[in-house]
Structures are given as C-alpha cells and as structure tokens.
Design a protein around this nucleic acid. Structure first.
Length: 461
DNA sequence: GCATGATCATGC
DNA sequence: GCATGATCATGC
C-alpha cells in the first residue's frame, strides 16, 4: 500500500496536512495529464484525489472513513469591499424521503457523517477552472454539544413532516441550524415522498447560511490552526444546554412569556425592573427583550442561538379596532449587495425573509387609549407563495438599484398591496449612503405592509 | 384616515 | 457614527 504524507486514520494528522493546501490551488499539485472533473461536487473529489492522494477506485468508501471525518469544500466570495463572505449554505446530503422516514437522528446520514467535518473554504470565482480556485481556510468542525441538541430538534421537525406526508410543506424557515433546502435544477425538481401522493420538491439537509457565517467568524477570529468547539465571541446565550436537554428551544422561549400575558406596559416595566423612557420608539421591543432574554441587558437578536439560526424577534402593536397601525421595517437596503448579487437565493433579502421570526404581539384594550397588553407570542416563517412575491419585490429593487433609479416612485409602495414595500429609514432626510452607480443616495429599507402583518397575526390563535 | 416620508432613543 | 427597532407627523 502506498504511503501517504499523513496518517489516514488520524484526524489531527489529516487536519495538519490539510493546511498545506491553504494559499494554493489544485493546479499547484496536479499531475501532468490529469483530467478535471466536472460538476459542483467535482472539487471535493479532486481535492481527495490530487491533494490527499486518495484513490477512488481502490476504496469507494466515504472520505477518510477510518478517521470518521467528512471532507467538505465550501465556497467563499469576495464582497466589493474585499471581505470574505459565505457564498452558500453547506449541503450535507440529499434527502430521500422514503428512506429518511425510517430513520432517527442518531442513525441519520447527517449525524453519521457530519458530526465531525474538515471544512476547506475556497474562494469562488466565476468562470474559473476548478483547478485554479484558491483555498483560504481549513477548519476542523466538530458540532458542539449544544448545537447538536438544537440540530437534533431541527431534524425531528423535518422528520415529522416527512413521516406525516408533509414533505411538500418543508421550508428552511422551519428550523434553527439544520435546514431542508431545495436542491435540483432551478429548485423546481420534485420527487416521490413518504405517506402522500403529493410530489415534494427535492431537498437536501444543510447547515444554514447564518450558521455557516458563525463558523467563518470563528475561523477568522481564532486563526486557521484552531480546532472548533468555541463560544460565540459576542452575544450571550439565549438558553442553556441543560434547558435544551428537557425542552425544545421554541418552548423554552414561549414559556418565558406565559407569566406576562395580559399585562400592560407599566406592569411589565415594574415587574421586569426596566426604566422606560416614555418617548422611546422601541419600548415594546425592550419589554419583549427583557422577557425573552430573562432580564439580560443584551439584545436577544444578538444572542448566540438567534445569530446562529438567523432568528429574529419582532414586536407588533395591534390597535383596539383590530388594525395594525404601523408597517414593519427591516434593515436598510445594502445597495452594493443588491448591485453585486444577481441570485435571489443568495440575496440578503432572501436570508431575512426566509429566516424564522419570533413575533411578540401587544394589543390595545381601549380604542385610542394606547393601553397595550402583551397578547401573544409565536414563531413564524414566511410561506413559499409569499417568498415568490418577495422574489418579485427583490427583482424590482434590484432593477431600481442597477438602473440607478433609487427613489420612491420606482419602488413598490404600500398602496400597491403586494405584501411588501420600500420606504425611507435614516436619521433624517440628509442621511445619505454610497450609491453603487456613483455619488450618494437616500437610505431606504425593506418593509412588511400593515395588512400583511395583520394576516400573520390573525393566522395565529 | 391612511400612506408616505421623516425621524428618534438606544447601544455598541 | 451608525445600525437597529421602531414610531411620529403630515399631506393628500
């Protein structure tokens, strides 16, 4: 048997050896006359063959199966500011609905292969031969115990839908870290599912974008020599490991609100020991944050789990007449991002709108008295059909930005009644930002229309 | 009365 | 200084 420059049965040895590819492309190692593989998975196979000297023909088994290690190559991209960004969610195996229905988490393909991964981040460049892509980071990623608890809960949510013949209703927004993402030609392929005749879109297990970003964040902060298992540098934890052992993440959060349901602003402020300034525009958010975060001063949207999951808490006020007075704003449109990226599924807006939301509803008791009480709390994700509308919305925004038409008359308005609109959001009218077409322009942000929020709130008892 | 544009407190 | 999470304020 051929000797390798590393010990194929030893994780640490493989990891050490892998660092030799950093700053290089496969071209630096490729033998004369090597025939490049095609397709998306081709890069990983070529790394095994060319860099690790792995002979597929003599051993068709999984990557480094002796060491229990899964090799994954995953792309980064450069922003216009030359920052490295995650390009894609990490796909961790197609889901065969029929086969998966008979499994449990501990026997799932995901658990068996992805608990311990050697991640090789490379820089994606369009129209570039795979042999010429540069490898940037190598990280040995062992899913931390706490993440595994959440991922197991994610798996069970996905598995339940599969078993109940609801695979066609799966959505990446159903779950926290482990997602069931669409896969296949234009994301339109369907396949046979378990326990139902309804064809379901083909999907794969994946570690979602937000989770991948925290891995990249870890690598960049600790250097490529570090072996996983880390604490998120900023942001406190929302829930403890111990709590996750007996309850789901969702129920832990929801249960924190129960003792406060029906209570008004002043009572909540008193019980939560918060000094609210009367003219704060985000005082209901502050109250909700104190409840959800168990009195912690920090913003729960910045907590470890909310960040890793891309989960967002939003508060809504419902007037006594049942109407929602205010539309809901999201972050400012990053014109450069919109300008640079022409893929809806890779857009920041898609990430925001396909993420999970924790809605906290306050309801006015007496018309025009503003005596709001905490009314209800629920998790929500945007339905597929609304995401399709969101794609049109994003296409319009992108056209506006690319054609340098960054003004209200070109954007969707609330009056257009299409769920979403664009409106200013800045310190004041002189608050400007760089226009990718040159010069400066006003700040605008993404919004939900009032009636769209109404629909969401009313669909939850 | 509501859609649209304008603006604010806060925290990092 | 600026992003965040919003609400205010006015003109149609």
């Amino acid at each position: 048997m051929e000797t390798k420059p590393y010990n194929p049965g030893d994780v640490a040895s493989i990891f050490e050896y892998s660092k030799g590819i950093l700053g290089h492309t496969l071209r630096d190692f490729v033998p004369v006359g090597y025939e490049a593989r095609k397709g998306k998975g081709g890069l990983g196979e070529m790394v095994e063959e060319i860099f690790f000297g792995y002979d597929k023909n003599s051993n068709p088994e999984a990557d480094f199966s002796i060491a229990g290690l899964e090799l994954k190559c995953t792309p980064l991209k450069n922003s216009k500011k030359q920052e490295l960004l995650i390009k894609e969610r990490l796909v961790c195996g197609m889901i065969d609905y029929i086969e998966e229905a008979g499994k449990d988490f501990e026997h799932s393909h995901f658990y068996e292969k992805c608990r311990l991964m050697l991640l090789l981040f490379y820089l994606h460049l369009a129209q570039t031969d795979k042999l010429d892509l540069e490898f940037i980071y190598s990280v040995l990623w062992q899913l931390p115990e706490k993440d595994l608890l959440i991922i197991k809960q994610d798996y069970e949510i996905i598995h339940n839908k599969i078993v109940n013949g609801l695979a066609h209703t799966l959505s990446e927004g159903d779950t926290m870290y482990l997602g069931a993402c669409r896969k296949g030609q234009k994301g339109e392929d369907t396949t046979k599912q378990y326990n139902s005749d309804i064809p379901a879109p083909t999907r794969a297990f994946c570690l979602k974008m937000a989770y991948m970003r925290t891995i990249l964040d870890f690598v960049q902060k600790s250097g490529t020599n570090a072996i996983c298992n880390y604490k998120l540098p900023k942001g406190e934890e929302a829930v403890s490991v111990d709590a996750l052992k007996s309850k789901t993440f969702d129920s832990i959060i929801i249960d924190r609100f129960r003792p406060y349901l029906g209570k008004d602003e002043q009572t909540l402020a008193r019980e939560l020991k918060i000094n609210l300034s009367a003219d704060s525009k985000s005082k209901f958010y502050q109250l909700a944050n104190a409840i959800a975060h168990e009195g912690k001063h920090s913003n729960i949207n910045k907590s470890e789990e909310f960040q890793k999951a891309g989960l967002m808490m939003k508060t809504v006020r419902v007037q006594a007449n049942g109407k929602i007075r205010e539309a809901m704003s999201f972050e400012n449109i990053n014109y450069q991002e919109v300008y640079d990226n022409d893929e809806w599924l890779e857009s920041r807006l898609y990430e925001i709108y396909s993420s999970r939301f924790l809605f906290v509803i306050f309801r006015e008791q007496t018309p025009d008295v503003r005596d709001y009480v905490l009314d209800k709390v629920f998790f929500w994700t945007m339905p597929q059909e609304d995401l399709a509308t969101a794609e049109d919305y994003w296409n319009n925004i992108r056209t506006c930005v690319v054609q340098n038409k960054i003004a209200p008359k070109y954007f969707w308005k609330a009056a257009d009644n299409r769920n979403f609109h664009v409106r200013p959001k800045g310190r004041d009218s002189r608050d400007l930002v760089e226009n990718p077409n040159g010069g400066k322009c006003r700040k605008y942000c993404y919004w939900f229309n009032n009636d769209y929020i109404s629909k969401i709130v009313n669909s939850h008892a």
